[in-house]
């Protein structure tokens, strides 16, 4: 018997949890349970990231996606989940239409995913998964340390890092901060009770 490949075992575990709970998000009609399943699906995805050697992105996924975005989402769910909005059923016609379109999309994507030979599993070379945090930080500041040994000089010129996107994202976040504060501002004392939202 071949020895068990633990990497594959953990991959299967996280992949099953992730896919299973994303399907559960789709199938349940209770919005609070949807949020809970989404938490589990995204947490399992971060496990997949760790397994792919992307430790920083995995931790980021837990920190920002699961710990920040989804808490916000559940916060919103709790503010609005009352009476008829907890469980809103979808008409059967939409389900059938959705299943046809989604199923065909899934078939296309799966056939694409499995058809390319270069994406097939390869035996992993020794010492390939190195810590990524420092290199990612350098790349965000404009220095691509992973491309320094690029033999092709034309390719090396295009590898100037991600400083500009980083700045754009920072400004974007600031805009979002101001914008959402503006959207959620208290009304001019007309309604009164709706003031404290976010």
């Amino acid at each position: 018997m071949e020895p068990i490949n633990w990497h594959s075992v953990f991959f299967l575990l996280f992949a099953l949890v992730g896919c299973g709970f994303s399907v559960a998000v789709l199938l349940t009609s209770n919005v609070v349970r949807m949020a809970f399943y989404l938490v589990l699906a995204l947490a399992a995805t971060s496990g997949l990231f760790f397994l792919a050697g992307a430790d920083f992105v995995g931790a980021m996924q837990i920190m920002i996606y699961v710990g920040g975005t989804l808490v916000l989402l559940i916060f919103g769910v709790m503010l609005t989940a009352r009476g008829p909005f907890i469980s809103m059923r979808t008409p059967a016609g939409e389900w059938i239409l959705g299943a046809i379109i989604g199923g065909s999309l899934l078939v296309v994507l799966l056939s694409a995913a499995t058809s390319v030979r270069a994406w097939r599993p390869v035996a992993v070379a020794e010492g390939e998964a190195r810590p990524t945090a420092t290199r990612l930080g350098m790349a965000l500041l404009g220095a691509r340390v992973d491309k320094l040994e690029e033999p092709d000089p034309t390719q090396r010129e295009g590898m100037s890092g991600y400083l500009l996107p980083f700045e754009i994202v920072s400004v974007h976040l600031l805009v979002v901060l101001v914008g959402s504060a503006y959207l959620a501002r208290p009304k001019k004392r007309a309604v009164g009770s709706t003031a404290e939202t976010v």
Binding site: P3, H7, S8, V9, G18, L106, P121, V124
Partner: peptide, 23 residues
């Protein structure tokens, strides 16, 4: 359980998540 994991396995997971999300 015994074979290594490749990019295509990840793509399958990604495809399932993408389609459920779109739905």
């Amino acid at each position: 359980l015994t074979e290594p994991i490749g990019v295509s396995h990840y793509l399958i997971v990604g495809a399932i998540m993408f389609v459920t999300g779109a739905l």
